[in-house]
Design a protein around this nucleic acid. Structure first.
Lengths: 185, 185
DNA sequence: GCGAGGTGCTTTATACTTCAACCATCACCT
DNA sequence: AGGTGATGGTTGAAGTATAAAGCACCTCGC
């Protein structure tokens, strides 16, 4: 869309519209980076937990019945290998526990330990407070606006992407997939 | 979502306001993740470059006179060690070049090579197009709204944080700083 | 039964990221 | 000069992240 035509003075408007998406994205990134830095460093200093570890625990707290690795990977929107690593470290800290799935031998069920629940509740309070402060630059009205805007964007992204968790039609690597090693010029 | 309490008293409003910041943040993260995933994977498949590498090159393209590592670290809002690594890899690909700073022996000046400029211009066109598509869920009006909202938030974040690049008053590690190794319970 | 293909999880290789320590150089001050 | 402290850059350890390959288990069809 909007390939640039060198015609009238409408043109500058069109170009600006295009650039506008980019400008929005850059501001977005800048804010994201700051917010995440604040949350990460505070979480680390005060609770000795990383942001991904906190996020994983948050999902588990929301699902007391436990979640499989696949479900976690889906909810956190990261790859399976990633979930394996973060879970390993949390398990070493005795904050979560893996147990075999009752009916399906392939799956693993993960849940918070009692210590994990206690630890998480403390962290969550601090975390929420920090988020509130970080977003305090917006009025209630603005937060509501942002919530709506983000909802619309989320919907658009869902519509245009083949859905985060979907496989590429026909499962794994149906066709020899092209590889792009670093060596390629 | 929105476990709404049907009692319209003031208190529930307050509680909801608080939760609202968190809800906005979660949606924000969800969108961020999707957009970055889209950009990263396309950049990798089509141009064999990672997102951080692209970002670094983008800064260099905007500053043809070259940038020091410190300036890059500041602009990209990442740590110095990070910039070292990304620059190392780009240099190995002959896309950027380090050269000593003319007057200050401590500094290093980094700039795009000719090949780097050519490569970046191609990538940038694709990248911008993708960003436009990803944000096409918003009307022009909505993009403008978002731009304003993000501007306000950015200002608030700048005000509340002691500025990204600042040192902790008195330089490096003036006092033995507490450490939080993984072993700590 | 049993084999083919799909699914869930882990592993490996590579890259990014932070934190904190370290080194070299510079600036300033006496 | 010479020393002190700040600054710019790199390094190393730990953790996070993806992509891709591998393994175990399940399902379905015959």
């Amino acid at each position: 869309m909007t390939s640039v035509r060198r015609v009238a003075d409408l043109e500058s408007r069109v170009v600006d519209n295009d650039h506008e998406a980019l400008r929005v994205w850059l501001r977005w990134l800048s804010c994201s980076q700051r917010i995440q830095q604040a949350l990460r460093s505070r979480l680390l200093r005060q609770f000795h937990v990383t942001l991904p570890q906190f996020d994983l625990m948050a999902q588990l707290e929301r699902h007391p019945g436990g979640l499989t690795m696949r479900e976690l990977s889906h909810l956190l929107m990261v790859t399976g290998g990633n979930v394996t690593g973060v879970t390993d470290r949390l398990e070493a800290e005795r904050l979560v526990a893996r147990r075999p799935h009752p009916t399906d031998g392939r799956r693993t069920s993960v849940r918070l330990t009692d210590a994990g629940v206690r630890a998480f509740r403390k962290m969550a309070a601090g975390h929420e407070q920090w988020v509130i402060e970080l977003f305090d630059g917006w009025s209630t009205r603005q937060r509501r606006e942002a919530h709506v805007l983000l909802g619309a964007l989320e919907q658009h992204l869902t519509a245009m992407a083949p859905a985060a968790g979907r496989r590429s039609r026909g499962g794994r690597a149906t066709v020899a997939r092209p590889r792009y090693p670093r060596e390629v010029r």
